[in-house]
Design a protein around this nucleic acid. Structure first.
Lengths: 347, 347
DNA sequence: TTGTATGCGTTATCAG
DNA sequence: CTGATAACGCATACAA
């Protein structure tokens, strides 16, 4: 409670006050394996309490060669919808009493590379890549992978969430399956004419979702031509623009499949502006099920992705090192049908 | 580019390769004040590059006595609307190339106290308190303030955002003014009968907003009785419940003033459920102007709070130490009138 | 089990 | 301006 005479109390202070050596104090307070005689431990703990001692984790990191916190690399602090991936990881970390250092790559591959370098300086236990959305084309380029590999070679752990194909432990959130499952259910509802608001052309996440969607449809004999795929930004404004483009093309469309809820919301806004009746004239579906959109109208059909579980899985991957090559944990979301895609009458 | 033979390259490695001393290498790479002969500096920089050297910031923190990063303490990772305060700070930090460590107090005062303790362990340059929303009653209790004061005595800086009255540097975001400005404009539009969805009874932020609102109205001869104030949670569900309560009371109300946009959205959802015409039968206004709600309908009248500026101001406060007592930077938002509060016909 | 001594990577001090 | 050398706070091999 009371603080040392000066500022911070050090381990030496505690040891002195408890009448033991630095080593014993260290072991009693932080050292995990070694045992300390109970009464001594008590004395140390008491002394620490009285001095208001808290370990200097920087010094700890120096001595141990690596810190204990986790660095979370996101592509951007999106003001619209803060990455659900980040939320998932933050939650899981909270449960583990883990510190998380968040840093943004500002949607720039070069910046991402620089950021990883400064992350290397921190020497965190692990770097978690929270991709998943607003991924710029080629964001995970060679330079970045190199830098991350460097970090890994130095003893750090790297886990990618929702970005398959990287040479690191990966938590796959089932983007392809999400698209496929959604397509299947929409087909069951009677939909046949789709336009896809596909997000950035080179973004892996977007690509997988679209691919799954089209494949599942193809299996049912429904082709979604390339001319029905409109690329756009990953966010609300992207959807807004793409919906406008869709209107312009006048292709027969009964349902707009948006690569993400954010895109879907933008599209809805645009369609409304055009005076369209939703979902009467046009149905809309997205992917993500972001909670903040619970109250949009019409209520949005979407695929709930397991972000909380993904965060958990990522942290577990970090906690259980395994050097037998990159592991991949596969999760899967589930479709949530709502008002924006009502069942169509039998054809 | 190439890494040292083993793992991490150390300052000693760089010095050796450049043929200079540790000290010189350190000064060339990090030390700010001292000067180094240009050609030597070049040699060092080159060596560092070739070795892929990155400073060990933990060691740096130990040597310097304090780290360079900033800790951001939020009340909770709200899945609905990630605290705009946090976004503001993150943005500003990004611009400064500063690392930010985010940690949540899980809306619990006890947890907050523990969290500050573990923050003390990290020895960050500063701790920024991102209050502002979902503040539990008495979240900033004495124990917490004590712990923060301890941290400050150890040489750390503390800045509170949107939580006035704390013995630390503060960025005031103008909660009272927000309520007042909004009330004034609504009165100008012709509104007279209000019910207030007031948020948690003891939350300072909520209290200030409501107080400003009622005062400005009182100045214009409009009284909002205590029976027109309904307390509720700070979030969407709080608004949902409070709107239900409002309906039950059947008090004549033409406009629902929600303490926050989140509450407003919840209220709108509840009113819709009750089959009400918005804004024809009931107008709704909030405070915050969260971007994610840009597309709710009817478009929400609200007060845009200067979160980005607040983040900037907080970081500036951190950057310019000043021990002449707590400073306070006062910012102010501005009202944004939208569809949810149409002008009423002359009375 | 406990204490001693040494190392971790940087910065800071103080001579040269 | 540069280079030895001593902190910084903690962990840990090694000896007791």
């Amino acid at each position: 409670m009371a603080q040392g005479s000066n500022g911070r109390a050090t381990l030496a202070d505690v040891a002195r006050r408890a009448g033991v050596s630095h080593a014993t104090a260290s072991r009693a307070l932080n050292g995990s394996t070694r045992n300390v005689r109970p009464d001594l431990r008590q004395r140390v703990l008491a002394a620490a309490g009285e001095l208001g001692y808290v370990v200097n984790s920087a010094a700890q990191a120096v001595a141990r060669g690596r810190g204990e916190h986790i660095a979370l690399l996101v592509n951007g602090i999106n003001d619209d919808y803060f990455s659900p991936v980040a939320s998932g990881v933050l939650h899981a970390a909270e449960a583990d009493d883990r510190m998380v250092t968040m840093i943004s790559s500002r949607n720039s591959p070069e910046q991402a590379t620089r950021v990883v370098a400064s992350l290397r300086a921190q020497r965190p236990r692990a770097i978690i890549l929270a991709g998943g959305r607003s991924v710029t084309a080629g964001a995970w380029d060679a330079r970045l992978v190199d830098e991350l590999t460097l970090y890994q070679n130095e003893g750090g752990r790297v886990v990618a969430i929702s970005e398959e194909g990287l040479p690191f432990d990966t938590v796959a959130v089932g983007n392809r399956a999400a698209g496929a499952d959604l397509a299947a259910q929409l087909a069951d509802l009677g939909y046949r004419d789709f336009t896809v608001l596909a997000g950035p052309a080179q973004a892996r996440t977007a690509h997988d979702r679209v691919a799954g969607f089209r494949e599942a449809l193809a299996e049912r004999g429904i082709e979604v031509g390339e001319d029905r795929v409109i690329h756009c930004g990953f966010d609300r404004d992207g959807g807004y623009a793409a919906a406008g483009e869709c209107l312009r093309r006048r292709a027969p469309t009964r349902l707009l499949f948006a690569i993400s809820d954010a895109v879907a919301v933008g599209a809805i806004a645009r369609l409304r502006e055009a005076g369209m009746d939703l979902p009467g004239e046009m149905a809309v579906a997205g992917i993500d099920d972001v909670p903040a959109l619970r109250d949009v109208s019409p209520a949005l059909t979407t695929v709930r992705l397991p972000w909380p579980e993904a965060g958990r899985a990522a942290l577990d991957l970090v906690a259980e090192p395994d050097d037998t090559g990159p592991r991949v944990v596969r999760l899967r979301g589930h479709v949530v049908l709502r008002e924006s895609t009502p069942a169509l009458g039998r054809l």
